[in-house]
Design a protein around this nucleic acid. Structure first.
Length: 644
RNA sequence: GCCACUUUAGCUCAGCUGGUAGAGCAACUGAUUUGUAAUCAGUAGGUCGUUGGUUCGAUUCCGACAAGUGGCUCCA
């Protein structure tokens, strides 16, 4: 007999070789029907795998960590089985579970797969799932495994086998499909009740763009149709929030073939938001001791050799323009320009920290396939600043920048983000990262300490640093789930040297400063894209392109409406009058859809009593007030930059 | 950049297997003068992304290019 310890601390005895599924059955049949996998001594494994020694056990169902991923992993195998039956001869690479489902990469031997094929595959999967096929695990010696895939002519699985040794190799078979797989898997296919294959995509073999492109099919499955329906409804909701859809509906921005891909045309509504954001940034930076500067959009080639950008990032800069035998580049970053301002006059320790800020326009030649609405563009306006400081000042300055982020995030009510400490990858020193191993470690530790002091949770990721130093990135997710860096706070120990920047210290010696690059509000493009989705288009009053719409009941009250409008204008409120010959219901509907925060309804009653009736977007009738009272309140709301 | 798909009126979308296009909303005009999410009627609006080819004939079939979309790669 062996002792099994349950999560609640209870210990029960079972015969050797008992499976998690047996144990579940011994508790109740109903429980057994929900068990997808088991966590044995913290290791996720098949619920059907025998247990021979005392162990702690957690039975994993759909909502447990490890349950869902096992379910989706098994679903990937089920999909592969369906693909093999409909497209014989397909060779499979890997098919892991992901955040929202699973995929499988495959080589279809030149055949193409269409949307229609996905529907056929779904049917086939459903058919196979109903057969109640059991996932059978088998340990296989390496020689046998190699022979199996050699006979099949499957170079992909043979490649996987290269890195595996005897004792590590297992095959899983369900129905007629056998795959090299570490597992674990769900007990059988009947758990999979609802199937949706979502899209077909290309994916480079092993993620290397020099390799062959495989076909990747993404899918998602659920233990019931209801859950699939809910998931699809959620996707529909997310689409409504998509900044590309809202950006068009609310006339925020547009793009045009004659202008170029990734080049945003900000319409009047979008420009209002830009100007409000800049106002906020300027106030905040003024208070933070920054000085503002303005620099040109282009610079000569040599500047970017000095900065070190050209050898590293030439590919992502627009090609140079030649003039009088000199090459000019559109700037992809503002820092070199700022360094030249720092360097224009001698600096002493008394000038430090020296903080330069600019909403700088940058141009980056992003790959065509990378462009994405406002989130990934080729012309961007960065909330940029560079802080030149001494080593002693660094921690305090870096922390002040972090505090500035948090202050901004509070204003916008941003809470769904991840702070990422982005470090270098020692293997890529000299290629992707300046070759200063000790400086990297030293500054990474400085940044880590700042983060710890701030007490903000963060994750560390190797290989995400800038080429000139480590950084803190604020990661956010777009409505459709794509991850982006919203804001960034970076250390630079490379450029101060390459630009030979220095200040005179107390001992009258030349000393090299450290630089902090920071962009708490990221770029206008990405930030407004994010805000559109964050607010679902319903901007707080201070950001709303149109703050108040005046809605007269009929033409009879147009004169009074005009005086109301004029008073609002005099109070610097962004307002318009709906003077169309429409019924009030129609005017309200259109204004609601345009997501204007306040509507002032004006009719006979209001005119006679010299008042206005207020309707708040999304909330309906909000009673009546005197106009002065309303103006006082909305002005305070705007000034407070309240994010409701 | 790579794989795949898409591109029809200002917007959202119809248009089967080739015979030069249609709806709703928006716009404009008229009637209506209206009380908290769509008043009615009429009018106008499209070289069917661009460009080659096949064909008697191309929005429709094929190619190239551009832009967009889903991924991959990339992302200072």
């Amino acid at each position: 007999m062996i002792k099994i310890t349950f999560p609640d601390g209870a210990v029960r005895e079972y015969a050797e070789g008992v499976t998690a599924l047996d144990i579940a059955k011994s508790i109740s049949e109903g429980l057994a029907r929900k068990i997808l996998a088991a966590s044995v001594n913290g290791q996720v494994q098949d619920a059907t795998k025998p247990i021979y020694h005392d162990a702690s056990l957690k039975l994993l169902a759909w909502n447990d960590e490890g349950g869902k991923s096992t379910f989706w992993h098994s679903s990937a195998h089920l999909m592969a089985e369906a693909v093999e039956s409909l497209f014989p001869g397909t060779k499979f690479w890997v098919g892991p579970p992901v955040d929202n489902g699973f995929y499988y990469d495959m080589d279809l031997g030149g055949k193409q797969i269409t949307e229609d094929d996905l529907r056929k595959l779904e049917s086939k999967m459903a058919e196979l799932a109903k057969k109640n096929e059991v996932y059978v695990r088998k340990e296989v010696p390496k020689a046998e495994a190699v022979k199996y895939f050699q006979d099949k002519g499957d170079e992909y699985k043979l490649d996987l086998l290269q890195n595996l040794n005897d004792g590590e190799i297992t095959f899983y078979t369900q129905g007629g499909f056998t795959d090299l797989c570490r597992g674990p898997h769900i007990p059988n296919t009947s758990f999979i009740k609802a199937i949706k294959l979502t899209n077909i995509a290309g994916a480079y073999w092993k993620g290397n763009e020099k390799n062959k492109m495989l076909t990747r099919i993404y899918g998602v499955t659920f233990p019931s149709q209801k859950e699939l329906d809910e998931y699809l409804a959620m996707l529909e909701e997310a689409k409504k929030r998509d900044h590309r859809k809202l950006g068009k509906e609310l006339s925020i921005y547009t793009m045009n073939d004659d202008i170029g891909a990734g080049l945003i045309l900000w319409m009047p509504n979008g420009t209002v938001i830009i100007e409000e954001l800049e106002k906020l940034a300027k106030e905040t930076e003024q208070a933070g001791g920054y000085k503002r500067v303005v620099t040109p959009h282009i610079a000569k080639e040599n500047l970017y050799h000095t900065s070190g950008h050209l050898p590293y990032y030439a590919d992502s800069m627009f090609p140079p323009m030649e003039m009088d035998g000199e090459k000019y580049y559109l700037k992809a970053m503002n820092c070199p320009h700022h360094h030249k301002i720092f360097d224009a006059e001698p600096k002493s320790y008394r000038d430090m920290p020296y903080r330069l800020a600019e909403y700088g326009t940058c141009y980056r030649y992003e790959q065509s396939g990378e462009l994405f609405g406002l989130m990934r563009v080729r012309c961007l306006h960065m909330n940029d600043a560079h802080i030149y400081c001494t080593k002693e000042q660094f921690a305090q300055e870096f922390k002040a920048v972090n505090d500035m982020y948090l202050k901004y995030f509070k204003i916008f009510g941003i809470d769904k983000y991840v702070m990422r400490l982005s470090l270098h990858d020692p293997e890529k020193l000299g290629q992707k990262y300046v070759n200063e191993p000790e400086l990297w470690l030293e500054t990474e530790e400085l940044v880590r300490n700042v983060l710890k002091e701030t007490g903000v949770p963060y994750v560390e990721v190797k290989g995400e640093g800038a080429f000139y130093g480590p950084k803190i990135d604020v990661q956010i997710w777009s409505a459709i789930g794509r991850e982006f860096t919203l804001a960034t706070n970076q250390v630079d120990f490379a450029q101060p040297r390459s630009f030979k920047l220095s200040f005179t210290n107390k001992d009258n010696e030349a000393e090299t400063p450290l630089i902090i690059h920071r962009a708490p509000l990221g770029t206008h493009e990405r930030f407004i894209g994010f805000l559109l989705e964050h607010y679902a288009g319903k901007f707080p009053v201070w950001l709303a392109p149109l703050q108040v719409k005046v809605l007269p009941i009929s033409d009879k009250f147009m004169d009074y409406a005009q005086t109301v409008l004029q008073s609002l204008k005099n109070a610097d409120i962004r307002c318009e009058l709906d003077d169309r010959n429409e019924k009030i219901g129609k005017k309200i509907r259109d204004t609601e859809l345009a997501k204007v925060p306040y509507m002032l309804v004006i009719g006979e009653k209001e005119m006679n009593e010299n008042r206005i009736s207020i309707r708040r977007q999304g909330k309906g009738d909000a009673g009546s007030k005197s106009l002065d009272e309303f103006i006082g309140e909305i002005t305070a709301e705007i000034k407070s930059r309240k994010s409701e």
